[in-house]
Structures are given as structure tokens and as C-alpha cells.
Design a binder for these strands. Structure first.
Ligand SMILES: NC(=O)c1ccc[n+]([C@@H]2O[C@H](COP(=O)([O-])OP(=O)(O)OC[C@H]3O[C@@H](n4cnc5c(N)ncnc54)[C@H](O)[C@@H]3O)[C@@H](O)[C@H]2O)c1
Ligand SMILES: NC(=O)c1ccc[n+]([C@@H]2O[C@H](COP(=O)([O-])OP(=O)(O)OC[C@H]3O[C@@H](n4cnc5c(N)ncnc54)[C@H](O)[C@@H]3O)[C@@H](O)[C@H]2O)c1
Lengths: 214, 214
DNA sequence: TGAAATTTGACAGATATTTCACAAAAGACT
DNA sequence: AGTCTTTTGTGAAATATCTGTCAAATTTCA
């Protein structure tokens, strides 16, 4: 058996596709579909059957020849692979437009991401309640993160403030940062995982692809 | 010269990197940095210099041997490539949490994306003003899109409603759809460009990458 | 039960993407 | 002006990713 460090490295292309499989399987499950072949799933998802089988085989043989994949079993396996069987405690840093929108989104909880706190510097909004959570002053954040086992911080604050806050959070033991500020965070502490969401960049690729320009 | 259809196809990997170059160049510009070599940019961006040169060369030789790239010139060229020298008229469909957050985000305008209208079915919020724009009833949308030269629609409504609305919008002449609903839109009309933003999937890849699971 | 149909997992071949390496052009310096 | 240094653009090599194919396992159907 391969030791932890020798385990086959899963390519990030594969990882990025897993949540999509998970979503489609969830829909199949809702529709009481018990099994599915890579062929049929490939039609629904508009990818090749070969890719589906190859992707899944990175993690083990979940299917059965002549039968296909059991939807519920595969759904649960992917859930485990993605780490969704755990619960993650989340805080949102920057309780402005985007921070509040994310805080109000209940579907994250279905996947195990539970918003435990909201923080902001603006005294005008500190104390306001968002989905049952009072926005707290940023000065409380250190104690809060250290005491409440916060796993993930969502950064929805101005890009100038993001690097400092990210570093602090890393020091206080956070595991992951979901960053919406338009900057690429780089931490000394490489044990902290960063996922950048650059919405403006997504919109720009859309504008690139709009043919016969406006 | 190659005709339109024969033009070298730019890979989507390259396209997705362009906005990032654009962002870094914008920052250099703000710092009055006049020129930059691929080598130095590669250090700042943490990619290889070779990749930068290769990417840019898909669109033309913007640099000069022994000198590097002129920041302002390159910034403007990438702006043109991305189609940002134009103004895009945008509407937001579904003026809930996320729709309002996006409507309030002024930075989109700096890149030429101007929010012209907000639409919703909920009579309780129709009429409410968001950044100077009244939320309109969805029934007004057809006339509005047809008369006001709307280029892009942002879909921030429930996933069940998204496919129908997307089809309508396509029929009414929209060019692009920026979809936040957790579903993959597929339109008959292939001339409409769709950019999906699946935030939950982004969060799931973060959870995958968090080592020493919680 | 046995033959036909289905479908996976694996691997090899085909594409795509990234990196390397270097000639040639231009700048910098004396 | 001439030499040395920098740095691009490019083609080729190295990687990475995706697709096609098929034996083997299993199901389906008569
Ligand atoms: N809203 C969008 O649609 C959108 C789109 C793309 C990117 N973003 C990015 O997301 C981030 C948030 O955007 P927004 O629209 O919600 O902005 P916003 O101004 O509505 O909210 C930002 C919040 O951060 C708070 N803040 C400022 N400094 C802070 C600090 N040091 N600690 C804690 N909180 C602090 C502010 O008080 C404010 O409440 C920004 O970086 C923005 O560029 C937003
Ligand atoms: N808020 C988030 O953080 C977040 C994260 C990931 C995905 N999303 C997705 O983005 C979409 C919007 O999320 P939200 O949090 O803003 O939800 P929301 O419920 O706050 O807003 C949705 C809005 O759409 C309106 N609506 C419903 N049917 C409509 C129709 N047929 N035409 C026009 N408007 C209609 C509703 O009245 C509501 O105002 C959803 O699909 C959601 O799954 C949101």
C-alpha cells in the first residue's frame, strides 16, 4: 500500500469535476433513480463516458460491469471524497453586500458548511442580525476563531485588507480561506488552503466569448 | 491572412488567464510602473515566464526584445482582447440576496459592465430601489430587453426557474448569460454565451483540499 | 440455463498544455 | 561604436489530460 505521501496525486482537473458529478447524482437521487451507467450520465452531463469512468477510478472501482453505478452509493462515496460528511464551521469576514448574501444562503448548510460568525469593522453594522447571527466587531475575531474551532473563513472585504486578515487567520489556526477579494492571497503558512473566487474575471471571460461584439 | 473561421483557436486555458494578467497589469499601472519583463511578472504572478510569453503571443507580439512589455500598452491590448473597451448593458434577474449584492458592486462598471435593470417576481420587493434602480416586475422584462439593447443577463434566481428564463432571454436577443443558479444551462440557441458560476462547487473543492480533515 | 447485451476498469493512443532552450533583436554601458 | 546584457518570440520536448478500445464481469432475456 502506498503511504500518505506516495498516494497517487489527483489532478486538479479531476477535483474540479467532482462537485459536478455530485450535483448530478444528487438530482438523480431526488428523482429516485437507483442506478446509472457512465454512458447515460455522459449524455446528461455532456462529457464523455470514458472521462467519467477515468475520473471515478482515481478513487476506486465504484461501479459494476453490466450494471453501472449505484446512484446512492456513488453519491455517498463522492461526498466522502470531497469531505462533505464532516461539518465545517465557517466565519464570514466583511459583512457587506456579498458577505451578507453568502450568510443568507442556506444551501451551504446542506453540504455541511455552517456559518458560525460574521465580522466587520464598520460600527454601523456591528450588532445587526443576519439569519440569527449578530455581526460582531472584528476585534472579537481572534478569540472567536481560537475558541470555536473555526475551519474556514470567507473573505468578503476590500482587497487591501485581505492579506493581513488572511495571515492573522492562518496564525490563529484556520484551515481554509474562501476568498472573494480581487487579489491572489499568498500565505507563508502553506498548510492553509486558499480558494479564490474572482467574479470579475469570470465576467471578463464571458465578455471575451460574446461574439459579434456589441 | 486567415479568415474569421480559420483563425487560430485560442484555448480556454489561455482565455481564463487573461483577466488575471489584466488585473496585475492594472496594479502595475496604478503603481506607475512603465515596463515589465515576462520574468519579473512571472515572479509576481507565480507562473512561468514562458507561459506568459506564450499566452500573449497568441494575440500578437506585444513585447520587445531586451525591453520587455510596456505596461500601459499591454494593459490596453488585453482590454481589447477581452472586449472591455465596449460598454455592456446588463440586467439582473432575481433581485434577492445575491442579485442585490451584485447590483451594488460598483467595480463592474469600471470594466464597462453597466447594470441597467433588476427584475423579480416577488411583489414585495418590486419597486424597491437598489443603487438608484427600481426593481421591476418580471413581466416588464421582455419589452425592456428588446428595447434597451441589453447584452448580458445575470441569473440570480432559483435553479428551477433559470432554464425557462434563459431560453426567453435568448429569444429576445441577449448575447450572454452569467448564471449563478446551481444548474448547467443548455440553450438551443448556441449563439448565446453562457458562463456558469457555481459557488457551491468552488467551496467543495476547498473542502477537498483541506488536509487533515476536521 | 445459456446466449446475447451491457458496462466497467484499464491501458494505450491521441490531444492539449506547459516548459525548455536558444537565436535574434534591442537596450545598457563603457 | 562596440561589447555585454537582457529579453522576446518560437519551435521542440516534456507533461498532462482526454478519448478510444477491449477483455472480463455481470446482467438481461428467452
Ligand atoms: N459584491 C459583489 O458583487 C462583488 C463582486 C466581485 C468581488 N467582490 C469583492 O468582494 C469583497 C466584498 O464586496 P462587497 O460588495 O460585499 O463590499 P462591501 O463594501 O459591501 O462590503 C465590504 C465589507 O467589509 C468591511 N470591512 C472593511 N474592512 C474590513 C476589515 N479590515 N475587517 C473586516 N471587515 C472589513 C466593510 O465594513 C464592509 O461591510 C470586495 O473585495 C469586493 O471587491 C464583490
Ligand atoms: N446567495 C448565495 O450566496 C448563493 C450561493 C450560491 C448559489 N446561489 C444561487 O443564486 C441564486 C440566487 O440566490 P439568492 O441567495 O440570491 O436567493 P434569493 O432567494 O435571495 O433570491 C432569489 C430571487 O429570485 C426571485 N425569483 C424567483 N423566481 C423568479 C422568477 N421566475 N423570475 C424572477 N425572479 C424570480 C425571488 O423572488 C428572489 O428575490 C439561486 O439559484 C442560488 O442557488 C446563491
Amino acid at each position: 500500500m502506498l503511504s500518505k505521501d506516495e498516494e497517487k496525486k489527483i489532478s486538479s482537473a479531476v477535483i474540479k469535476r467532482l462537485p459536478r458529478y455530485y450535483r448530478y447524482l444528487g438530482e438523480l437521487l431526488e428523482n429516485d433513480i437507483e442506478r446509472i451507467s457512465s454512458k447515460e450520465l455522459s449524455v446528461r452531463m455532456d462529457v464523455t463516458a470514458s472521462q467519467i469512468r477515468q475520473d471515478l477510478n482515481n478513487f476506486g472501482g465504484f461501479g459494476q460491469q453490466g450494471y453501472g453505478y449505484n446512484v446512492e452509493y456513488l453519491y455517498n462515496e463522492i461526498s466522502k471524497i470531497l469531505g462533505l460528511e464532516k461539518t465545517y464551521n465557517i466565519i464570514i469576514v466583511g459583512a457587506g453586500n456579498l458577505g451578507q448574501a453568502l450568510a443568507n444562503y442556506i444551501d451551504f448548510e446542506k453540504s455541511g458548511f455552517v456559518v458560525k460568525g460574521l465580522f466587520d469593522v464598520n460600527p454601523k453594522i456591528v450588532g445587526i442580525s443576519v439569519r440569527g447571527l449578530e455581526i460582531q466587531d472584528i476585534d472579537n475575531m481572534e478569540m472567536y476563531v481560537k475558541n470555536k474551532h473555526i475551519d474556514i473563513a470567507v473573505l468578503t472585504l476590500p482587497k487591501q485588507k485581505a492579506p493581513k486578515i488572511a495571515n492573522d487567520l492562518a496564525e490563529w489556526g484556520i484551515k481554509g480561506i474562501w476568498n472573494f477579494a480581487p487579489t491572489d492571497l499568498q500565505l507563508k503558512d502553506k498548510s492553509v488552503t486558499i480558494e479564490n473566487v474572482h467574479l470579475s474575471e469570470s465576467l471578463m471571460t464571458l465578455s471575451y466569448r460574446i461574439k459579434d461584439r456589441v
